[in-house]
Structure formats: C-alpha cells, structure tokens
Amino acid sequence: MNMNRKLTWMLLFGITTLFTQCKDSGDEVKADDENELITSVTLTFTEVGTGTVTTFAYKDPDGDGGNAPTKFDTISLKANTSYTLTPAFLDESKTPVDDITAEIKEKAFEHLLVYTPNPTTLLTYTYGDKDTNGYPIGLTGTAIAGAAGTGTLKVQLRHQPNAKNGTITPGSDDVNLDFNLKVK
C-alpha cells in the first residue's frame, strides 16, 4: 500500500515535467497588420485654366503614434480662383504600398469625402462625382477659393458601409484632418 502511494506520487510529479515544455513567443512574432491604416493623404489642387498643379500632404509613415507625422502642409491657394481638387490616400506601411484611393473608388457606395472650410468664406466645394446610388463621393470636385484670409480646411473620409445616404452623419471617420488654409 505504502509503495503504491509512493509510486502514485512519483507518477504525478513525472507528469509535471511533461508540461514544462517551454514555448518561446519570440519565435512567432508577427508584424502589426492594421487593415484600415492610412499613412498619407495628398490633396492635389489643379488650377482651372492654367493647369498649374500644387500638392499638399499629410504623412505619418509609421502610422498612429511612434514617430510624429513627418509632413503636414499648409494649403496655400490664390484668392477667387477655381481648382480641381483630387485627394489621394496611401498606406505606405505595407509592401507594396497599398493604394487606398483605388479601394475607395471600388467601394464608392460606402465612402464619402467631406471638405469643410473654416471660416466658410475661404472656400466653396462642389462634388464632381457620384456613386452607383447617385450619392456624391468627393474623389474629384471643384474648389473655389474665396476672399483672402487664413483658416482651416477639414478633410474627412467618412466610412459608411450599408448606411451611406449622402449626408455626413452615418458611419465613422477614416480620415479627419484639419489642414491650415491660407488664401492670398
């Protein structure tokens, strides 16, 4: 009986050592994968008539946090001038670089770009495109700079899956940037 008991205990302790196999979580580190990341936003203003192209960008190559954004331009426009405005979005953290603009175009029925100047007199925006449901998108449009002054231009990319109705309300922001705006 006593022998049996000893054996039982030895057996049980034996099982413990089986469990003590170690696994190193360091061998299986995977790079971060954020599916909605946008690292750069570029606004291209093409002057109607002259065709002069100016671009203004926001760049944060390593995404949120980490290093601070490397670029956040001030938009500079001529007063009382018409421009064609085309935005471009990239995820440069991926290899190859992910062209988010193309994906927005493909899923135009669930995205809406909103341009809000403050004060409103600085700029007037008119949508130049429509999705399959007839709602605006904002990947191309006309921006008319108003009287000279300084303020901001809020650029929002609204992600509105199954809810897009032409207004800003549904969905959530994928981009929400306040560019400084100078009209002179």
Binding site: C22, S25, E28, V29, K30, D32, E34, N35, G63
Partner: peptide, 17 residues
Amino acid sequence: LYQYNLMTGRPLIPNFN
C-alpha cells in the same frame, strides 16, 4: 505559473513569455 501569449493583428500588446 508559466504562460505565453501570441498575438496578431492591429498593434496592441506584444507577444510575451
């Protein structure tokens, strides 16, 4: 206590032992 954590996806916490 021995534990290890493996994670994938959006950045949040690291793997650890």
